[in-house]
């Protein structure tokens, strides 16, 4: 009985962490996905120099800050290769903005949006992920 109680408590803590992980991952990837979509819309509208667009700089800055804050925690429960892949794309998006490469920035924003959507779905206990 004592052992059963101990293992139940350990499992409860583990499950609490698992639920917390799902909620946090979902919220962060949803945020990144929506920011990437906004960046894509702003890039489509922009006809001049993208490095001069303040709204675009603000959106990408927000996206980069959110991911930088989260990436350390993400390493606790995500495959590190995936975390590195998202970091790489976020850094690239920021660099393309500074170097005024509109098409590259658009392609990278597309990749970030698709990847974060994929990661968001992967964190949920859906049948496709379970089987």
């Amino acid at each position: 009985m004592k052992k059963f109680i101990v293992i139940t408590l350990i499992l409860a803590v583990t499950l609490f962490a698992a639920v917390w992980e799902t909620v946090t991952l979902n919220a962060t990837y949803s945020y990144i996905e929506s920011r990437a979509r906004t960046v894509m819309t702003l890039l489509e509208k922009e006809n001049g120099s993208i490095s001069q667009n303040e709204e675009l700089a603000e959106q990408i800055g927000n996206l980069e800050k959110r991911w930088t804050d989260f990436s350390c925690a993400a390493n606790y429960y995500c495959n590190h290769a995936v975390v590195k892949s998202v970091t790489e794309k976020v850094v690239m998006l920021s660099a393309y903005l500074k170097t005024d490469s509109k098409t590259d920035a658009y392609a990278t924003a597309c990749a970030i949006q698709a990847l974060s959507k994929e990661m968001k779905n992967e964190s949920l206990p859906l049948i496709g992920n379970l089987l």
């Binding site: 293992i7 350990i10 499992l11 583990t14 962490a17 698992a18 992980e21 390493n75 606790y76 429960y77 995500c78 495959n79 590190h80 290769a81």
Partner: peptide, 14 residues
């Protein structure tokens, strides 16, 4: 090193 430690803890405890 790419797989978090937590990914091993959950199945072991379960």
């Amino acid at each position: 090193p790419y797989i978090p430690f937590y990914a091993g803890v959950v199945p072991i405890v379960t």
